[in-house]
Design a protein around this nucleic acid. Sequence first.
RNA 1: GCGCCUAUAGCUCAAUUGGAUAGAGCAACGGACUUCUAAUCCGUAGGUUGCAGGUUCGAUUCCUGCUAGGCGUGCCA
Length: 569
Amino acid sequence: MDAIKAEVYDILKNAIHAAIAAGDLSITEVPDIPFSPTKTPEHGDIATPIALGLAKQARKPPRDIAKIIKDRIDLESHPTIHEVDIAGPGFINIYLSDEWLYDTLRTIASTQSEYGTCDKGAGKQLQIEFVSANPTGPINIVSGRAAAVGDTLVNILNAIGYKAIREYYVNDAGGQVDRLGESIDVRYRQALGEEGLEIPEGGYQGEYLREYAEAIAETEGDTYLQLETNERVGHFRDKGVAHILAQQKTALERFGVNFDVWSSEKAIRDSGKPEEIIGLFQEKEYLYEAEGATWFRMTDFGDDKDCVVIRSSGEYTYFVPDAAYHRDKYDRGFTTVIDLLGPDHQGHITRLKNLVKALGIPDDWLEISIIQQVNLVDAEGNRLDMSKRRGQFFTLDALIDELAETVGEQFAVDVARYFFLMRANNTHLDFNMELAVTHASENPVFYIQYAHARCCSIFEQGNEQGIAPKPIEAVSLKLLTEPIEYELIRKLAEYPSVVLLSAEAREAHRIPHYLHELAGIFHPYYNQHRVLDSSDMEKTHARLILIQSVQTVLKNGLTLLGISAPTSM
RNA sequence: GCGCCUAUAGCUCAAUUGGAUAGAGCAACGGACUUCUAAUCCGUAGGUUGCAGGUUCGAUUCCUGCUAGGCGUGCCA
């Protein structure tokens, strides 16, 4: 399709230039010719509003311009184009010869699982950092959304030729994990019968820590009580982080998300790099002392406030290790780094961008996408405050568990992933656990998977009847004459550009929507037309090619989403 | 106060980046299994795209101002 578009582009461009040369069009500058998608076959296969755009410059009605361009296209010498039509206010609709349809099928047949991929990314190294939940509690559904989106984005970017990796930044240092250690300590002592203890300010109330501490008390007894408080809390912090991190990893793996790199904030802090960063900033005079703390002149970079980098207590704020971490990413050679952040990190964006600038790294190296929030709502639609500290949240594991009860373990992950992927990143998502579970069997993912299963079933049936699909060269594709067959192939031809646009816009949700549309053409086709017809083997083989193509595209798309393509349902 | 996000059918969401008659799925109603899987299909109904302006051949999309909700806003990350 791309090759054809390029060809049509040239034909149109030549036609316009010819018209100018002949004096039919008085324009000085030929703009890029835009192609607008045709929503209906009535508008041809490719359409362009170029005549509308030239109207002002040429001082002629758009329809007249369209006619002038059309008259300059010699259909005889361009067999690719079947017909050119002028419609509406001045659209030029181009009807292609059927050959491009067959080309689409041939391309799918020869490229198979590669169909939809390209080398646009030219092997450039990319990194997406996502989830990066604090190791202070289980992965919740908000992180689940980020996990599904980030994982899929990596797949899509790799599909268009990048070398993208998944990275998780573990905030295993700083105040939050200290609070974790203190919280576990309290629960541990409570488990051993100590009374009058309370979770400290900023600590973690969740039930999971109580259970964890009780388990420690049970297996290891009161041995830790002999340690000094500081030492004990530190021990619990490290132990707790390791424990929770392992849990998070397991939950993510169950969800089908496997990170390539786990980076540790603690390791960054211990590496000496933060000191280098401070040194660099001092050298560039970005820092100053005030109120007992060290500040970064964020206002020099256009922000409205400066911010603290070294607290009055002498500790770094997150800012310094974060700078060191991004410096480290840059040094690792990534061409582009994409951070997927939650909306609560929104204030972080400008600062992070400025910080990268301060490090002397090009602006466009770091992309930040916000995965908008997931609000937990109850049955009545009231928002619930989801907080790890207060211990109110749904874990990703709990979601999958509940889904598994309705749709089975096999599909629980598929349903959950699809649920998160079908939304655009920047939409706020109200998540009603009850509804999500009771409506699990209505999830559109089944519509797509069922289409795939039906394709497989046709081949199985054919196999039983002794009908084996023929290679595409041996099949007469001209027998695919039904309008809906044409529509199907049109849709199949769209797939590569959907993947490309999806990757470039960093918008994973386009893939599920596309697949749903494809299935939405396939199912009616399946109901209206029989594929296996022993009285017309020629047509049967032509249709089998089509079914194979649909099956391939469905499978390729589902694979990008990390969703299974079942052969039967 | 300032900054960011959001507002589209009763509900949940799309709309290929400014294109032609704004589309799907749920929910509602009426039909289709003797036929490759009915987790499907066919049909009906559902809209002043939050409001008011502006930009232009053309606006759900861009700009301005409102309204409503959410998030953020110098020593948590």
